[in-house]
Every structure is written in C-alpha cells, then in structure tokens.
Design a binder for these strands. Sequence first.
DNA 1: AATATCACCAACCGCACGATA
DNA 2: ATATCGTGCGGTTGGTGATAT
Length: 214
Amino acid sequence: MGRAPCCDKATVKKGPWSPEEDATLKSHIQKHGTGGNWIALPHKIGLKRCGKSCRLRWLNYLRPNIKHGGFTEDEDNLICTLYLTIGSRWSIIAAQLPGRTDNDIKNYWNTRLKKKLFLGKQRPPPTLDFSLADHEALIMPPQLVANSGYCNYLPQQNINHGEANFQHQNVWENSLINIPSLQLQEGISYGDMPQLNTAAVTSSSVENVSWFWT
DNA sequence: AATATCACCAACCGCACGATA
DNA sequence: ATATCGTGCGGTTGGTGATAT
C-alpha cells in the first residue's frame, strides 16, 4: 500500500492561480503567517488548493522580495560555478542568490544557461556523482559559511597533459574565476570537460580533487 | 496564412527526510 | 521502535507565446 495522498485530488483545484487566489493567500500569510501547517492552510482560508500548491505559490511567486528574470552576468557566473561544483542542488544554489528561488534558477539553467555554457557541444554537461557527505565537505568549509562565499576548483597543471588537478580554494572578494569564460577562452571543447574521478574524492581529502580530461 | 517547432516557465508529482505521537 | 504526517526538494510536464517553415 502506498502512502496516502496529501489532499483529495478529486476536489482540489489544479493549474494556474487566479489573481483572487493569489490575493487570498498573500493576504492571509502576511497577516497570520503560514500557521506552521501548509496542509491545513487552504481549508482555513477557503482555497480549493492542495497545501503543497499553496506553499509553492507563496515561495516561488507571492513571497516579498522575489526577483523574476533579468539574471545578471554575475548571477550567471555564480550559478554556473556552483552547478559545476555541487551539481543540481538548486536550493543551495538559490541560497547564494538573494531574491531568487530554486525553481527559477532551475528553469533558467535548463532553458538558457546550459545551452549558453555548452553551446554547440555534443553531450550534456557532466554529472557530479559523489556522496552527500562529499558534497557537504566540498561546499561547506568553515570559511565558506562564515563569509557566505563559495569555493571553486582551479586547474593547477597544463591541461594538455591529459590530467589536471583542481585545488580546492576559497574565493574571496573579486577573485571569482569565470569558469565558462575560462573554458571558452582556452578553447576547450566539450570533450575536454572534466569528469570527476570519484575515487579521488573523499571527505578527508577534499583539498586536492583530481579531474581527468576525457 | 497556416502549421510546426521551439523556448520559456509555472505548476505538479513523487520521493526522502525529520518530527512526533 | 515504528508508523504517520508535514515539509522540502529535484525532476518533469503541460500550457502558452514566439519564431521558423
């Protein structure tokens, strides 16, 4: 037996939100908060919506200080850098971009940035397939948390030698390296994109991560 | 002008996880 | 210890407008 659905799908309304629904939800949350229970919220305010749908609508659209569209070059670079570093962990990436939602960034990546970054390339970008513990170790050194910065991986050796070591380092102030530009400037084809050597990545040895050109 | 294809994005779905009874 | 529930997340879908043929 599967898990019980969170709402009655026969009676719940789906599809685009009307301005009236938006106003009802926004007004209630601004006055009373979510009440800590999204499932109960729609019943309480008379919306024929699933609680999850209300939560999504609030977080992605109605919440104050949400920015839509108009991504800057800096934001592009940060998204690309973080994606190449931690993969599709959109909530973590969104946390580095004030006013942006994970859904927005995910859509932006899937529809535009991926194409921009890998324009004309034959294969999709490499997936970074290593454990959660490794992700955490890679992206959350103490300095990173303290400074709300992020880490980066930079090539140490000549890329023509078939193997390049990327050294973990924190990136401060204006020292962010534009990975997409770097790849384009160096004329590296997609086939040269680094594949993560997962065997080289452990929580205890993240200072030097090896990548291999394929 | 009509049709097909593409691009974008809001919203849905199912799963995993943590809290709690 | 375990079952249940609510929440958060990432993947995917479907509607709509823009563009190409």
